[in-house]
Simulated scan of single mutants.
Amino acid sequence: MSKLGPLPARTDRRAQLSAPRRAVLDLLVERQSLTVAQVAQELGQHPNTVREHLEALDRAGLARRDSLPPAGRGRPASVYSYTPAASFSSPEYAVLARVLVTYLARAFPDGPALRRHAREAGRSWGRAIVERDRGLDGGHQPGRPASTGAGSSGEGTTGGAPGGTPSPRPGNGRTDASRAPGPAPEPAEAARLRRAAVDRLGALLDRAGFEPAAEHDDARSRLRLHRCPVLDLAKDRPEVVCSAHLGMAREILATTGITPGQVSLGAFVEPGACVLQVTSEPAGGGDDAVRVGPA
């Protein structure tokens, strides 16, 4: 394979489903993960009917079944979530994305300013992903220190607030600036936390349709992104789209203490993938750490 960069995101497969089964899948996409009983209650259907739809979606690769942690006696309940193959894409959303990117490029024709604003837009996207994911698991993610919160990447502004005003942390009213930095973890522990953070990011990007594959060594972690939800647009305006993707990834990783200088993105750098890299130490590439094309 000689073409550099990822493949397009998978096409919408809802059209192949019956209306009742499509309603079940759409509910999973909206709510992320649900039990049979929850789907039945939401849709007003019998649990046996819902179970049949969910099992069919599982067989088709559009949903995934996992077991909840045991709670007392009996078999643990199953919970269903949608897979990246179920991600919805439509021509209308593609047109909207192109219009927004074109407007941004016209509003900020200067290269560095344009990329900076694109990264800030990506950070807002990352914060939304973090908040949604935190709400799904009761407020804490694996590999994330309990005291950290979204919006702490430190790139451009603090906590995403305009003008550099620190954002208060949820639940305690304190700001990032009011917290004294804790002791740095030992190298082995820092590597473990980095790997857990990158694996968590990979799970979120997988849900968004990027089809990532992670690899780790002592000095760095890499996520190879084999698909892109807006591939044609990324090819036309990588300085906007890829910068936004970098900002989003940095914001998600910032919730585990990884700094922007540790995170860079190589867009269209190898056959079949873009590469997001997270190093143990800041790489010194600055905020604008998107490289387009092979070195």
Rank of each mutant, 00 (worst) to 15 (best):
R13T: 07
A15C: 12
S18G: 15
P20H: 12
V24H: 00
L25P: 14
D26Q: 13
V36L: 08
A37F: 08
L43T: 11
V50C: 02
E55C: 05
R59S: 14
G74H: 07
S87D: 10
F88N: 03
A94Q: 09
A105R: 13
G111E: 15
R115T: 07
A118S: 13
E120H: 14
G122Y: 00
G122D: 05
W125K: 10
D133T: 13
R134A: 14
A146S: 15
S153H: 12
S153N: 08
G154D: 08
T158S: 13
T165A: 11
P166W: 01
P170E: 06
G171V: 08
R174Q: 07
T175P: 02
D176I: 10
A180M: 12
P183W: 14
P187F: 07
P187H: 02
E189A: 15
A191S: 05
R207S: 11
A214I: 11
A219Y: 12
P229D: 11
D232Q: 11
D236P: 03
V240C: 06
C242T: 04
C242Q: 04
S243D: 08
S243E: 11
L246N: 01
A249N: 05
I258T: 11
T259Y: 04
G261T: 01
Q262L: 03
G266N: 06
G272Y: 02
C274E: 06
T279I: 07
E281I: 07
P282L: 09
A283W: 06
A283V: 08
G284D: 08
G286W: 00
G286I: 01
G293A: 02
